[in-house]
Design a protein around this nucleic acid. Sequence first.
DNA 1: CGCTCAAAAATTGTCGACAATCATACTATC
DNA 2: GATAGTATGATTGTCGACAATTTTTGAGCG
Lengths: 222, 222
Amino acid sequence: MNKSPTELTPVEDRTLRAQVRRQILDRVLGGQFGPGARLIETTLCTQLQVSRAPLREALRELVDQGILVSEPYKGFRVRPVSERDLTELYSMRTALEKFAFTLTWPRRTPEALADLSTRYEELMSIRLSGDQAKAIEREIAFHGWVYETSAHRLLQEHWARLSYLVRIYMSLHHNLHGAHGVFGEMTTRYRDLAEGESLEAMLAHIDEHMVQGFDSVVRALA
Amino acid sequence: MNKSPTELTPVEDRTLRAQVRRQILDRVLGGQFGPGARLIETTLCTQLQVSRAPLREALRELVDQGILVSEPYKGFRVRPVSERDLTELYSMRTALEKFAFTLTWPRRTPEALADLSTRYEELMSIRLSGDQAKAIEREIAFHGWVYETSAHRLLQEHWARLSYLVRIYMSLHHNLHGAHGVFGEMTTRYRDLAEGESLEAMLAHIDEHMVQGFDSVVRALA
DNA sequence: CGCTCAAAAATTGTCGACAATCATACTATC
DNA sequence: GATAGTATGATTGTCGACAATTTTTGAGCG
């Protein structure tokens, strides 16, 4: 899946709207804009040096992605988070990821498995380095493997939405404590099972994996 | 769940944006704007008598809901549909609805089951009347019961997105043929199982139910 | 006829200003 | 002192015009 360095990649963020969206998204995922924080349009406009039209459209796109919420004449806020939200997020992830694995199971070509190993190695190496922002990205990329391999576009769309919420919780977790939600042994076992022969064992592990990740985050937020 | 007639309900569509969104949505779900159809902003503006700012924001909200797609400098289109999309939609529905039922199973109070019966009756009565637009709404409302009863807000959000696509396919199906995708006996069995004691039988039936609905729509579109 | 290129038209992206609404502080009245 | 009402400021909603990009048109040439 990774492109080689020399390969040309399409220019991204061609519109101001896209650039604005990226910057706001980075701030939210980075924790500068915490859950519930209100976003004042005029303030953002002066900071970003754009007019309100592209800004507002960018904010609406982020609402679509579940990052922000908006109310007429009240403005935009970063999506508030609660323990209930977290519970729902993890149970939803569990359901979707089990579905994804049943689809992916017969599609695990040698190339696909090599791709998974690459993501695993990249995740493990960055965890040692301490760059938390990158670590979160790779955590998402690691778990994204099964969705991409499933070749189910609609499922990928729904995972994309969930993954943003996961990012928010992870960065929140990190800003409160230094460490990570899921431990190395769990991740290793996840990969080993994904390469193995028993789909049932994999599905059972996902339940475990999620519960552990959930507990870890809840404990950190409490 | 239904409000009594005298009960006050919040004023809706306070902004032009909301009104525009509703009108476009109705046109898409009604089939006037078919899948893949391009939406020209200036044309819509003159028809709706609004400026482009609220129109564009409304369109972006519809993109968020999965009704439209957009590309920079290329504009908005109604989400194209293919047989693959339909396959994905039904498999996704199956996965989510099974998840929803496992959550709902211990929450089936007498009130909840009465609510389901009401929706069932309303669906059956409207099917005879021939009002197809309402029939689709009630079909969605009938299937929405399990999501609402699950008390899982995130799951409800994802169902909401899926339900719009289901509506599109149903109206497409109706515009090509007169009849409906799912037959009465299937719906009756669905309700009976939902009131019964075996969760496993319910889950198995969902697979069947979806496959039949899928086949029916595919055959109609082919 | 088919292709390349350039000009024109159509369409989307962005801007700055004004109108409508909400939030706050203050006054008046009981 | 508490409460209703009012004025003020802050913020979001909407508009019309202009800039940037894409699509269409058509002339020129092999």
